[in-house]
Simulated assay, not measured.
Amino acid sequence: MGKTKKLIELDDKAIEILEKQAKLEKRSLKNYIEYTLEEQAVRFSEPSEAYKAMMEDMLDKMEKNEIDFISMDAVKKKYGL
């Protein structure tokens, strides 16, 4: 996989916070920012295995009519909204 350079501008306070976090993890600021962004990108790219398993379970329960659904109006009425 290739790499692309990007120039980013961050608030001084954000940099200060990120530098502290980087030091806690014994990383350089640059490495910490790259690592954090790459980890976030992975989270966006595909649901976790736990989420997939939970959704499969829910779909299975729906097929077996084991789930009761309540209308939004009923929820609002129940909670006085």
Rank of each mutant, 00 (worst) to 15 (best):
G2Q: 11
G2M: 07
K3G: 13
K3D: 11
K5R: 14
K5I: 14
K6D: 01
K6W: 03
L7C: 07
L7Q: 13
I8S: 01
I8N: 01
I8P: 01
I8G: 02
I8K: 00
I8D: 01
E9Y: 12
E9R: 14
E9D: 08
E9I: 09
D11V: 01
D11A: 02
D11K: 03
D11N: 06
D12Q: 09
D12Y: 02
D12E: 13
K13I: 06
A14S: 13
I15P: 01
E16R: 10
I17V: 13
L18K: 02
L18P: 00
L18F: 08
L18V: 02
K20Y: 13
K20Q: 14
K20M: 11
Q21P: 00
Q21C: 06
Q21Y: 03
A22D: 03
A22G: 04
K23Y: 07
K23D: 15
K23W: 05
K23A: 15
L24H: 08
L24S: 11
E25G: 08
K26H: 14
S28W: 04
S28G: 12
L29G: 09
L29A: 10
L29F: 14
K30V: 09
K30C: 07
N31W: 02
Y32R: 02
Y32I: 01
Y32C: 01
I33W: 01
I33R: 04
I33H: 02
I33D: 02
I33L: 10
E34W: 00
E34I: 04
E34K: 04
Y35E: 03
T36W: 04
L37D: 01
E38Y: 05
E39G: 10
Q40H: 08
A41S: 05
A41Y: 05
A41E: 04
A41K: 08
V42M: 15
V42Y: 12
R43F: 05
F44C: 09
F44S: 11
S45V: 03
S45I: 02
E46R: 11
E46S: 09
P47A: 13
S48H: 08
S48G: 15
S48Q: 11
E49C: 03
E49Y: 03
E49G: 08
E49K: 13
A50Q: 13
Y51N: 12
Y51L: 15
K52A: 04
K52C: 02
K52E: 05
K52H: 01
A53M: 07
A53N: 09
M54N: 12
M54T: 13
M55L: 14
M55Q: 14
E56A: 15
E56S: 10
E56H: 08
D57H: 09
D57G: 04
D57T: 10
M58I: 15
M58L: 15
L59S: 06
L59P: 00
D60A: 03
D60Y: 01
D60V: 00
K61N: 10
M62H: 09
M62C: 08
M62Y: 09
E63R: 12
K64T: 05
K64N: 12
K64P: 03
E66P: 04
E66S: 08
E66F: 06
E66R: 11
I67Q: 08
I67F: 06
D68H: 13
F69N: 05
I70C: 09
I70T: 14
S71Y: 04
S71I: 04
M72F: 14
D73N: 13
D73I: 07
D73S: 15
A74N: 11
A74Q: 15
V75M: 15
V75T: 10
K76H: 11
K77Q: 12
Y79N: 07
G80H: 06
G80D: 09
L81S: 06
L81N: 07
